[in-house]
């Protein structure tokens, strides 16, 4: 086992990569379940947080568990409300682990299909930021609708928001947009292109 690890550093098992990226040692989790008990969306998740932690604990030896964690809907449902981290008796930063899982799933193209809308929203959001430096709400919502296909959702809200002055038709822009493009090029884009 350990010999293999040294032979293929890229094949470091998932728990090790999580430790490296987040500093969270999943072995410390003793499965008390307090995170799942307090998680606002545990009931919607395929694997509540404590189960994700357990999947990660076993993922080193059982690749199928690593797969289950990566393809979970949970990672995308996590709201980063931090209540699990706040109450965890072992002080494990579970939201950070969820971040790491999302990044890994994106890179390996293993995003749970149910998370399509959430991902579309995030991408639309960042696209807006990439181009203007700030969030252009109108543009983003349109972009999101195109990506998600939910054309009719919220259609009735928009005119009202426009009326009360909450929606602008033109984006606000950052002056140094080239720099932002560089930041995006060196982070998100570079990462997504990496095998």
């Amino acid at each position: 086992m350990s010999g293999e690890k040294h032979a293929h550093p890229a094949a470091e098992p998932l728990p090790g990569r999580v430790l490296e990226q987040t500093g969270v040692d999943v072995a410390r989790c003793y499965q008390c379940g307090k995170c799942s008990a307090g998680c606002p969306l545990a009931a919607e998740m395929d694997y509540p947080p404590s189960q994700i932690m357990h999947l990660l604990q076993l993922a080193g030896e059982f690749p199928e568990f690593a797969e289950m964690a990566l393809r979970s809907h949970t990672a995308w449902l996590c709201l980063t409300c931090e209540i699990c981290y706040c109450r965890c008796p072992m002080e494990l930063d579970i939201p950070k682990v969820m971040d790491a899982l999302r990044h890994e799933a994106l890179r390996k193209k293993k995003v749970n299909p149910k998370a399509k809308d959430i991902l579309a929203f995030h991408r639309a959001f960042l696209d807006s930021v990439k181009h203007t430096g700030r969030l252009f709400e109108m543009g983003q919502v349109v972009d999101y609708k195109l990506r998600s296909g939910h054309f009719l959702q919220d259609l009735l809200q928009a005119p009202w928001m426009f009326l009360v002055g909450k929606l602008h038709l033109l984006p606000e822009r950052v002056r140094d947009r080239r720099q932002l493009k560089r930041i995006f090029a060196r982070t998100l884009k570079a990462r997504e292109n990496r095998p």
Binding site: G33, A37, P48
Partner: peptide, 23 residues
């Protein structure tokens, strides 16, 4: 995870980890 009072009773937010960690 939490205990709070509601209408004179105490709401206990727990979990059963043996049943898929359902809250």
């Amino acid at each position: 995870s939490r205990v709070y009072e509601r209408n004179g009773r105490l709401v206990v937010k727990g979990v059963d980890t043996l049943l898929g960690a359902r809250p």
